[in-house]
Design a binder for these strands. Sequence first.
DNA 1: CTAAAACCTCACGTTGACGTCAGAGGCAAG
DNA 2: CTTGCCTCTGACGTCAACGTGAGGTTTTAG
Lengths: 120, 120
Amino acid sequence: MRIGDLATRTRVSVRALRYYEEQGLLASTRSVSGQRLYADAAVSRVRLIQQLYGAGLSSKTIAELLPCVDAKVSTPESRERLAAERDRINAQIAELVIARDRLNDIIEMTSKPNPECAYE
Amino acid sequence: MRIGDLATRTRVSVRALRYYEEQGLLASTRSVSGQRLYADAAVSRVRLIQQLYGAGLSSKTIAELLPCVDAKVSTPESRERLAAERDRINAQIAELVIARDRLNDIIEMTSKPNPECAYE
DNA sequence: CTAAAACCTCACGTTGACGTCAGAGGCAAG
DNA sequence: CTTGCCTCTGACGTCAACGTGAGGTTTTAG
């Protein structure tokens, strides 16, 4: 599969895919003429990358993490790293829940008639 | 209270506080010599701003939202805006939960001995 | 065979929330 | 009164994950 196909199938831009390769997140073989070629597994790889980006991990962190996924092995350091990221995500979830509730409070507060202004 | 005090009490940098003012999120009165002066209420205001930033809202969005909080009134448009942000946050939470679980899977997968390598 | 579409490698542009530095004035302590 | 910290207004720097355009090659459809 060529880069355009992978882009279509993952809904990720061609530029982003090249960027992932540049960051060492996504490997490709090359055709004789130098065009990138991908195996089917690249699709799920890209999805994983996107998920991790979505969770706030940086390219550098993902680059450290992916070899563990591939080898299905983690060193004590990488395990610690992974756990730290998980904790960070948990903290971020908690923060988002608070913000959401806060936002809901604001919605309710500004939607309902103000008792101070009630004429009865 | 002067800007340094507010910075200390909120753990937000002086630069950030000036930035908030520039974005129309945080008002201040000025001393004769032009120094910014804040009321105690500024502390919780800054906390709210931080929470909303943390939830992924932009300066522009927060600037639209804060007047509603202050006036305790929302227009249909702003209510829609608020609800949209809340939904976005909910979606983001869901995404984070998935990523966290994925990360946990990876941790487990790479931590436990690989059955394929088991010698018994 | 040819034109369009897809691909390649640079390499500069974008965006948001600040960081940082320069140069100048302001304020409580000794 | 001066030393030293605080504050002021510009205004340029930063960082990450791409977007975008130039200029050139390759593949594909007709």
